[in-house]
């Protein structure tokens, strides 16, 4: 090949005299935000009429209750096994059902994987409605509509979980690198097939990790929704609390604590293994 292109060495110039910018002062912005937040907090406390005096007037009551709570009655343990298992089962079943339903909905709810704007808007609207209702309200609705017991708890948690999972997974899809998808579409694939083969492998670690997080949430939530009659440890808490059996209550609380700590340990380990 002929050497037609000759290169001249770039000539060295002394760096031009440049003016350094003055460092912008921004502390007053932080101070303003702090003042506003403090003002809103104080105003809220006044508005809801917080009565700190009650803390001291009822101190005798509190110390008696705390005293009992500090002495869990371990002999009550056999009575708690059945509700404990029910709480675990509720959490696991709801997580599984919600995880299966959430995956396709997440793909429909992300701009990155759903090219149809009307469908996207419709799915997002429904998801916003589902997410705006708290789990406790779902539970009390289902207890009224279905029956007291674990089934109502499962239905409530499934809806609660779909709201969370679809939100987290579809937002993760939005932020994903879409190179593989672009290549698949350029090779003549349709959107469904391109999403399945190029986007699913990229999202799966995040999806699995969020599912484990939701399982963790469910253990806590299934105790709370039990309070309104949706089965599990929550129903037991409601029972012993009504009869002021704080020795029993503290055992139940202790069990929940152990359950949550163990699960958190397991889930953080699993997520570390997954997302590398």
């Amino acid at each position: 090949m002929s050497a037609a292109v000759s290169m001249s060495k770039p000539t060295e110039h002394p760096p031009p005299a440049q003016q350094r910018p003055v460092r912008p002062r921004t502390w007053w912005k932080a101070a303003a935000v702090l003042v506003v937040v403090a003002a809103v907090t104080v105003w809220s406390a006044i508005a809801v009429e917080v009565d700190f005096g009650a803390l001291f007037r009822n101190a005798g009551n509190a110390s008696r209750t705390i005293g009992q709570l500090l002495q869990p009655d371990y002999s009550y343990f056999p009575e708690t096994v059945r509700p404990l298992l029910e709480t675990l089962e509720t959490a696991v079943i709801s997580t599984a059902v919600a995880a299966v339903l959430s995956l396709p909905i997440s793909f429909l709810a992300s701009r990155a994987t759903d090219p149809s704007t009307p469908l996207l808007v419709a799915v997002r609207f429904v998801m916003n409605v589902i997410r705006s209702i708290p789990d406790l309200l779902y539970a009390s609705l289902f207890v009224t509509a279905v029956a007291t017991g674990a089934l109502s708890g499962i239905l409530a948690l499934v809806l609660f979980n779909i709201g969370i999972l679809v939100k987290l997974v579809s937002e993760a899809l939005d932020g994903l690198d879409r190179g593989g998808q672009e290549a698949a579409l350029a090779a003549g694939s349709g959107w469904i097939k391109a999403d399945r083969s190029a986007m699913l492998p990229e999202i799966s670690p995040i999806y699995i990790s969020q599912t484990i997080y939701v399982l963790e949430l469910n253990i806590r939530a299934s105790t709370v929704i039990g309070l309104v009659g949706a089965g599990g440890l929550g129903m037991l808490i409601d029972k012993v609390r009504t009869f002021y059996q704080y020795h029993y209550l503290s055992l139940v609380i202790l069990e929940i604590l152990v359950l949550v700590v163990v699960l958190e340990f397991v889930s953080s380990y699993a997520r570390r293994k997954l997302v590398r």
Binding site: G179, G180, A183, A184, A187, G188, S189, A194, S197, A198
Partner: peptide, 28 residues
Amino acid sequence: RSEIGMVFQSFNLARRTTVLNNVLMGRL
């Protein structure tokens, strides 16, 4: 498009799946 292959500057592979699966995307 199925009759026109395309190569991109940033490779555009699905990084979390196998090389074979990436090549199979040409068959989608």
